[in-house]
Structures are given as C-alpha cells and as structure tokens.
C-alpha cells in the first residue's frame, strides 16, 4: 500500500496559490462563455477555497488519484463543477485544453461532476448529499485505524449556504457529531445568495456558526477569499478530538468579476463574448493590483 509522501501543507508558495486561483477564474469565465453557459457566481465564490485546498492542504496526487492514503474532497455544491474542473486541470488531474470541451457533445465535463473526470471522487449535483458521503468516507478511515495509511485521511466537503436548507444536511450534521467524526471538515461557501434570492430572505440561517456549535461541531469563520485565513483553518484540521469541524467561509458570489459580483442573475449565465472579454480584463487588472 502506497502512502502519499507530500506534506499536508506548505507545498506551494502563497504566490503560487494566488496565481493558480487567478488562472482558475479565467477558466471559469471561459467556460461560462461557451454555448451552454455555466454556474458563474457560485463557481467564482469558491475558487479561493478550492485553490487553497488543492494547492496547499489536500494530500492528493494526480498520478495516483485513487491512492488509499489520499485526502478526500467532495463538491457537495456540485453546480460549481466548472470551478472544480478548472482546479483539477491546474493541479494536473486534467489537461487544461480539455476545459474548452465543457458542455460540448462528447465531453466528459458535464454541468455537474461525474466520476468520469479524474480527481472527482463521487458525483454530486443534487444538493444535500455530500456531507453524508463524506461522513461515510471519514468513518471508513477511522475504522481502518489511524496510522495504517500514515496520517489519517481528512475528508473535506464543500457545501453551498443555500444547500443547508436541505434537511438531509442536518441529518449528517447530527450523525457526524454523534459519531465523533473529527476528521470530517465541512466548508460552507457563505456567499449569501441562492438561485433567485438572498439566503436570508428565503430562509434566515444566521447565526450559522452558532447553529453548528449547537450541534456539537467545532467552528472557524474566515474570509473565504483570504488565502492566509483559509490556509490557517483548512490546513490545521482536525482541530478538536471527537468533534467534526466546519469552516464558514464568507465569500462574494461572482468574486473577481465586478459585473457578476453579488448579482442574482450571475447564478447561471452564458457570457456574451464582449462581457467575457471584459471579465478577463477585470481579472487581469485585479491580478496586477
């Protein structure tokens, strides 16, 4: 049985992670400019989370995507598939050239991730499934005993904030606490907007951190676009023996593309060429600044 030798953190410099995040944003814009369009807003809001996870936290190896010692990542908010594809491409799981095929006939890059894509652990898309899957994988690692595969695997599950309206999420929140699944880490992309409304208008969920604490979880609240804060929270999990952890990442839907930031209509969009070009320009300027 192989054990991944890469360290849990510190593999990539902060500048490199920032650069990867910038490239991922450009890919996301390109995919949303294709014929099918894409989930622009909620993809851009989680780019920094994905970048820090894949370039600085997760023990994963594109050469051995099924290595039993790998850390697990599940995109429970599967509609952010294009952000995941772009991240996997930048991390070496996919040829970045394949991203151009997203949404086109014959491509394996569907609107929600499938296992045909290297690096995708399990398919997601219907909301409220990822946390239970992650709990299963976390319990699996525990039953195999700590140490047998090196440092015990951590399982990260990225959820949308609107997704937390699905009751199944809270079944898993309770079960993770009762099973003391401390190597399970939920990350909430708290961008505040769901498909058609602000989350607080549809179903108020604050104080979200207190809710998780009330269920027995350990909570970290961070700026979801600050790589330092993300790294400090994600990279140090598990934090407390016997308690699952959640990182509530305050984010901006559409982050990085001013025309899409905090806009309801940027949830799913097909970008006209002119708008896409402007978005690329804005992203480049942001990088330069």
């Amino acid at each position: 049985m192989t054990v991944l030798a890469v360290p849990a953190a510190g593999r990539t410099t902060a500048t490199e992670v920032e650069a990867a995040a910038a490239r991922i944003r450009h890919h996301v814009v390109d995919m949303c400019a294709g014929a099918e369009g894409g989930h622009l807003g909620g993809s851009l809001s989680c780019v920094d989370i994905l970048s820090v996870l894949y370039f600085d936290v997760l023990r994963v190896d594109p050469e051995r995507p099924h290595d039993p010692g790998r850390d697990i990542f599940l995109l429970s908010k599967g509609h952010a598939a294009i952000a995941l594809y772009a991240t996997l491409a930048e991390r070496g799981f996919l040829d970045p050239a394949e991203l151009a095929g997203y949404g086109r006939r014959g491509s394996r890059l569907l609107g929600h991730p499938t296992r045909a894509v290297p690096g995708v652990e399990l398919p997601t898309g219907s909301l409220g499934h990822g946390l239970a899957l992650g709990l299963g994988l976390a319990l699996s690692a525990r039953m195999r005993e700590a140490g047998r595969f090196g440092p015990r695997r951590r399982t990260y599950v990225l959820l949308g904030d609107g997704e937390l309206q699905e009751g199944s999420c809270w079944e898993s929140v309770m079960a993770a606490a009762s099973t003391r699944a401390d190597h399970l880490v939920a990350v909430v992309d708290r961008n505040g907007l769901q498909l058609g409304s602000p989350t607080e208008r549809v179903c108020p969920m604050e104080p979200l951190g207190e809710r998780f604490r009330g269920f027995g979880w350990d909570v970290r609240e961070v700026d979801g676009h600050d790589h330092g804060e993300l790294r400090a929270a994600l990279g140090t999990a598990p934090w407390t023996a016997g308690r699952p952890g959640v990182v509530i990442a305050r984010t901006v839907k559409g982050n990085g593309v001013p025309a899409a930031e905090n806009r309801i209509d940027a949830h799913y969009t097909t970008l006209p060429a002119r708008v896409a070009a402007r978005a690329h320009r804005d992203l480049s300027l942001r990088k330069a600044s």
Partner: peptide, 20 residues
Amino acid sequence: LGIAEQNLFGVAAGLAHDGW
C-alpha cells in the same frame, strides 16, 4: 446512525466507495 435515512444511505455509499 439513528432515524435519518438519507444520511444512512449516503454514509453507506461513502463506505462502499472506500471498499467496505
């Protein structure tokens, strides 16, 4: 895992995916 069947089957899937 208690009276929570959606979680129950999701956890089962996670475990089966990992070889159980």
